[in-house]
Structures are given as C-alpha cells and as structure tokens.
Amino acid sequence: MTLFGYRVPMMASLLVWCVLWEIVGRLDLVFLLPPLSEVLSAAVGLVQTPSWQSATVTTLRAFFTGMVLSIVIGVPLGILMGRVKIADDLLGMWVNIFSSAPLSALVPVLMILFGFGERTIVAAVFLFAIWIIVLDTRAGVRHISPSLIEMARSYGASRRALYLKIILWAALPEILAGIRLGLIRGVKGVVIGQLLVAIVGYGALFETFSRNFRMAEFWALTIILFAFALLIAELIERAEAKVEYYAGAR
C-alpha cells in the first residue's frame, strides 16, 4: 500500500491495530482486554520473574527436543518414501491422515503414556511437527530431476554419494519448507500440549493468569508466544531464501 507517495510495508498495519487495541483497552470496551501499554509493561515485569524464566526454559527445551526428533526421524522417512515405492504405498496413507487429523485429540493419550510432564510435551511437539516434514521431504525427493540422478550414475556415483551429494541437496528447498511448517506446527503442539497438561511451563502460567484474572499478564504471555512463533518462522524463511535460487533453477 502506498500512502502520500511512500510505500508502507504491509506489516506496518499491525501498528494500526496496536493503536486500536490501546484505544479499545483504555475505553474498557471489551471485557478482559486491558490496554496494550499495560500489557507491554506487564510483559517487561513478567520476563523478570523466575517463574517465567523457568517456564521458558522448560518450554524451549521441550520444543527443541521434539523438533530435533521430528527432523531426525522425519527427513530420512521422507527420503525413504520418496525413493522406495513400497514404503510410500504403505506409509503414505498414514502420513497423510496424521498430517491433517485433529492431533489435539491424541494429547490425552500422550498424557497417560508419558505422564504429566515434559515428556508428554516433547511427544506432542514431535507428533504435530513430523508429518509435514515427511510429506515435504518426500515431495522434494520426488521432484528431483531424473537427469540429475542419471548424471550421478553415469559418472559412477556410489549409493552413498548419490544420497549425500545429490538427493539430500536437491531436495533441500522442500526439506527446509517442511521444517519451517513443522516448526510452526511444533509451536502449536507445545502450546496445546502445555494447555492440556496445564502444570508444565507456559501452560501452568496461562492457567494461573486466567484463573486469577491477571489479564495483562495473560496477554503479555500470548504476545511473547506469538512473537516467538513468528521469529522462528522468519529465521527459517531466511535460510530458505538462500536456497531458493536453485529451487527454481531445477
């Protein structure tokens, strides 16, 4: 959008919404919505509390453990499905089902299998993130130009070299896209998991704040979470931009 001849970046409109939030909050128009300034000062206060800090450590640890697991398992699984037809035929259906199923319904199962603790959260992150990573990796492998594989074969590539020097690299744009979407889903997994377990990390904080109507802190925590989710997506997108040039060139 252009305003007075200047190109205003799209995300700048979020500032308009922030101002609107402040006004609505000041006027006390919507129940449970304190003004943004109050929320921000609550956020400043919140990040200094030990309970927030320890909750953040717990949350981040569970998130990254779950993500590492889903990448380490998801990428090889996707490559396997992309290269081996029988694996694709047998697993494809389930990966498709789980990638769009309401996985939040499975969190209660995770709770009884893994207990009311961090392991459940790790499992939830893993369960939310892995399927899209598998699907995208598989698609990336499927779309490698056949001539690139023939090229490697004609110059005598071993099986190992074929996978490490050609397939992994050629599928990298899609693998990264899958990981980015997986990270976004993983954030949702960690939040949903913690909300349902309700005694771990941010889930416990949300529970406390909303039970005691500490709305400024509730919103502050929400903003921190949103910012974290967007930051992660942005970082991966940067990495993707670096490989994008060759996604189009194939």
Binding site: V187, V191, L195, L225, F226, L230
Partner: peptide, 22 residues
C-alpha cells in the same frame, strides 16, 4: 489487504489455541 492480511498471517503462524481458554 494492507490492513487485514498481516493480522491473518500472524494468526495463522501463531499458536492461537492459547485464546481458547479466554
């Protein structure tokens, strides 16, 4: 577009489940 799309981008990427108790 300028006004609304960023909001929905944020809502799509962020864990909006946190709003449900609210």
């Amino acid at each position: 577009e300028w006004l609304l799309i960023p909001v929905f981008i944020v809502l799509q990427a962020a864990p909006v489940a946190a709003f449900i108790p609210m």
